[in-house]
Design a protein around this nucleic acid. Structure first.
Lengths: 331, 331
DNA sequence: CTGTTAGCGCGTTCAT
DNA sequence: ATGAACGCGCTAACAG
């Protein structure tokens, strides 16, 4: 716990000179610099960032408020991306949970504000349109994986429409003609966008849109996928491909397909969504799916904030990041 | 960005009185308190924690250093537990990634130290014995999900021996007699402990230990589980139960069992380990497994640190937390 | 190239 | 019940 003054005394210089050395100020002779560095090592001196932050009025701190963190663990990639970008820019992240509770979220943001974060990211686990916490905008902020209706806050979201399009098109290109869609719950923003992309791909390739081939799940879980797939397989003319709006649905669909004695992808091709590694990579056959750009969104959000912090105000941007196709063995 | 002085001026008191109100000092008349609170609201004053931290020499900050965060996402529960405990105690967490790189980890810890965290948690994604980063101990610290050989740093780990015992015993109690074990790679601390528990349960119930029934995987992935299970099913007398040292192995084992036309749990009972929700809950039938106390370890670690911070030094504790049996449908 | 003075926003100490 | 002076550890602004 040596202080800058003690280092100065030990090195026989003023404490300001120590400050210069610590901050790589060129205006220090090589000689004194060496003596100061010796003293620093000898005393185990470490600059006190709390004091520096107070003086410079900068904290190099970013807040990350997540609605929930544990339930969709693959979304930690968003945090990872934010961490990596922050580290690169010399920032640190303070991560807090809103626990899907408005008051709790507001309190969490309040604490972040008191700690003088230089920006905040508000991240949701599912892509949706939200009503942002009121105090969020008291610091420069970005919404990640969600956006607000009036677009007054910067945001970055996955391009689910294009994702839906690409998923459908890869099936079409593999020669399939009756392509079913097992979607998420109908109201979800992601569900609508993916379905729009699905329809656009069908239309582009002059395939009919058949409502009988489109099903919705209640909560996007494997059981849902299993039952919806069974319904599809009971159709007079069964589909030869299915686009599942997430990998868990696909997991259930796999079971239904296998129980019917059908083979993937020979009889039915399957594309999932989310690239939830633990499912997609391990299903047999491995699942072809669309990856969500969680890492990239986290990275984007921090880049946006650090640039905003560096350059003062800047235009409110709305980022849209692509969902890459991950080819495996189910198409 | 109102300061405490501006509030004082607005309320017609000295800034010290404002400080008293903010800190709930009883020595303020109800009258002045009301006026001060009005001024605070009018100006949107928010205490500056950076300044307060500097003055009180306390930050209410805890560091959490993780070796990696993305690859085993279910371990985020450790973070969740730490967050919850920290919030309850009025602390915040700064989470940094070591990325499994020694230099990076040391740098990350250094930054945490400069920011004057009051304690640090070093968490690994897999339960193992480690050589802790050298600068970790410069603040009160705890190891979570790992421990060091000399036990000089507090730690909290899962009780894998008891977990292995319980997993095996639930199979025995269900009437199985030939219980196979598909373990992790042989050197892992968790693998050894689970196997010790497995043997203890067999011995207690007077069942023979048969080396032919014990297999090791290379990396604990489904493909491994699939192949090891096929080997076990090729035995002259096939097992009637299998204890898989993680859920991914069990996932592969399921495929092998099903391909052999055998039914779970009728013909072969399966117990996994990790309670990796996305797998365990969604396999068909749902997998009975042992839960890892990630949440509890995170919680424990923060409780330990906040107590240590409050009471000065205290005995170096080594915590061991139970792995609860999660009964589903595979036994 | 180096040192001095001042003050960031707050809490502590002691006075009134 | 309230206020004045001081200093936490550091950097900014200015001397020299």
């Amino acid at each position: 716990m040596a202080t800058i003054k003690q280092v100065a005394d030990a090195a026989g210089v003023s404490f300001k000179t120590v400050s210069r050395v610590v901050n790589d100020d060129p205006n220090v002779s090589a000689d004194t610099r060496a003596r100061v560095l010796d003293a620093i090592n000898a005393l185990g001196y470490r600059p006190n960032l709390v004091a520096r932050n107070m003086r410079t009025r900068r904290t190099h701190l970013l807040g990350l408020v997540a609605d929930e963190i544990a339930t969709t663990p693959f979304a930690v990639n968003l945090i990872k991306g934010a961490q990596d970008a922050a580290w690169k820019r010399g920032f640190m992240l303070m991560i807090v949970n809103g626990d899907n509770d408005a008051q709790r979220t507001e309190d969490a943001i309040e604490t972040l504000l008191e700690r003088k974060v230089e920006g905040m990211i508000y991240a949701t686990m599912r892509h949706e349109v939200i009503d942002p916490p009121p105090n969020l905008i008291e610091a420069p902020s970005v919404l990640a994986n969600c956006r607000c209706a009036d677009s007054r806050i910067a945001s970055v979201v996955p391009d689910d429409e294009k994702g839906g399009f690409d998923a459908t098109e890869v099936l079409i290109r593999s020669g399939r003609r009756r392509i079913a869609l097992i979607n998420l719950e109908e109201i979800a923003a992601a569900a609508q966008a993916r379905q729009t992309g699905y329809r656009r791909a069908l239309a582009l390739h002059r395939l009919p849109y058949d409502e009988a081939l489109v099903r919705y799940t209640d909560d996007g879980q494997p059981d849902d996928g299993y039952h919806r797939m069974n319904e599809l397989l009971a159709l007079d003319t069964r589909p030869d491909a299915v686009f599942c709006a997430n990998d868990r649905i696909a997991m259930g669909a796999y079971d239904a397909i296998k129980e019917h004695g059908l083979r993937i992808p020979h009889d039915i091709a399957v594309v999932g969504y989310d690239n939830q590694e633990v499912i997609a990579a391990y299903l047999r056959p491995a699942l072809t799916t669309m990856a969500l750009p969680h890492y990239e969104m986290g990275y984007w959000a921090v880049e946006y904030l650090t640039h905003a912090a560096a350059q003062g105000e800047r235009a409110v941007e709305q980022g849209t990041l692509p969902c890459p196709l991950i080819m495996r063995e189910s198409v």
